[in-house]
Amino acid sequence: MQWTSIVAIYLLVWVMCAFVMLPFGVRTHDELGLEKIPGQADSAPANFRPLRLAFRASLVAAVLTAIYVLNYDYGWIEASDINLFKPPA
């Protein structure tokens, strides 16, 4: 596999991981006991940390991409292994 393909796969996996991790660990002003700004949505986060999110997404994406590339090279699981519509033997 070419390195450009690995980078593209990593970036796709990183974006998916970041979106999946967005709601975890975020608390609202009501949950933290902080005062709200007038007109603020009730669900607005009070402790959003984008750098922490990016770091966690980078770690998870690196691990998942490494597993994907190793599976591609060694062929542990192939498309025929996950065929759900095989006729019963």
Rank of each mutant, 00 (worst) to 15 (best):
residue 35 E to L: 08
residue 62 A to V: 09
residue 60 V to S: 09
residue 5 S to I: 06
residue 21 M to L: 15
residue 51 L to P: 00
residue 17 C to S: 14
residue 5 S to V: 06
residue 42 D to E: 13
residue 35 E to N: 05
residue 48 F to I: 07
residue 61 A to S: 12
residue 13 V to W: 02
residue 66 A to N: 04
residue 17 C to P: 01
residue 19 F to T: 06
residue 57 A to W: 02
residue 63 V to H: 05
residue 4 T to S: 14
residue 26 V to K: 13
residue 52 R to G: 13
residue 60 V to Y: 04
residue 33 G to N: 00
residue 52 R to S: 14
residue 24 F to W: 13
residue 21 M to G: 06
residue 37 I to W: 00
residue 46 A to L: 03
residue 37 I to D: 00
residue 23 P to I: 09
residue 4 T to H: 13
residue 35 E to V: 10
residue 34 L to T: 05
residue 60 V to N: 04
residue 18 A to W: 10
residue 15 V to H: 05
residue 8 A to M: 10
residue 44 A to T: 14
residue 58 S to R: 05
residue 24 F to K: 10
residue 59 L to H: 00
residue 43 S to N: 15
residue 5 S to E: 09
residue 61 A to E: 01
residue 55 F to G: 14
residue 19 F to C: 09
residue 23 P to A: 10
residue 22 L to V: 12
residue 5 S to K: 10
residue 12 L to Y: 05
residue 31 E to W: 04
residue 65 T to F: 03
residue 38 P to V: 02
residue 41 A to Q: 01
residue 18 A to H: 09
residue 34 L to R: 10
residue 21 M to N: 12
residue 18 A to G: 06
residue 64 L to I: 07
residue 49 R to P: 03
residue 30 D to S: 11
residue 38 P to A: 12
residue 37 I to A: 00
residue 7 V to I: 15
residue 44 A to V: 10
residue 22 L to K: 08
residue 25 G to V: 01
residue 64 L to C: 07
residue 46 A to H: 01
residue 41 A to S: 01
residue 39 G to Q: 03
residue 66 A to P: 00
residue 48 F to A: 08
residue 9 I to L: 13
residue 31 E to R: 08
residue 47 N to L: 09
residue 40 Q to G: 00
residue 47 N to A: 12
residue 30 D to F: 04
residue 59 L to F: 07
residue 39 G to W: 02
residue 59 L to W: 03
residue 16 M to R: 01
residue 11 L to T: 12
residue 48 F to V: 04
residue 21 M to Y: 14
residue 39 G to I: 01
residue 25 G to R: 02
residue 43 S to G: 08
residue 63 V to F: 13
residue 59 L to Q: 03
residue 15 V to G: 06
residue 20 V to F: 14
residue 34 L to I: 01
residue 18 A to P: 02
residue 46 A to Q: 01
residue 5 S to N: 07
residue 29 H to N: 09
residue 20 V to M: 13
residue 53 L to C: 07
residue 48 F to C: 04
residue 43 S to C: 11
residue 23 P to D: 09
residue 44 A to R: 15
residue 8 A to D: 07
residue 20 V to A: 15
residue 63 V to W: 09
residue 38 P to W: 04
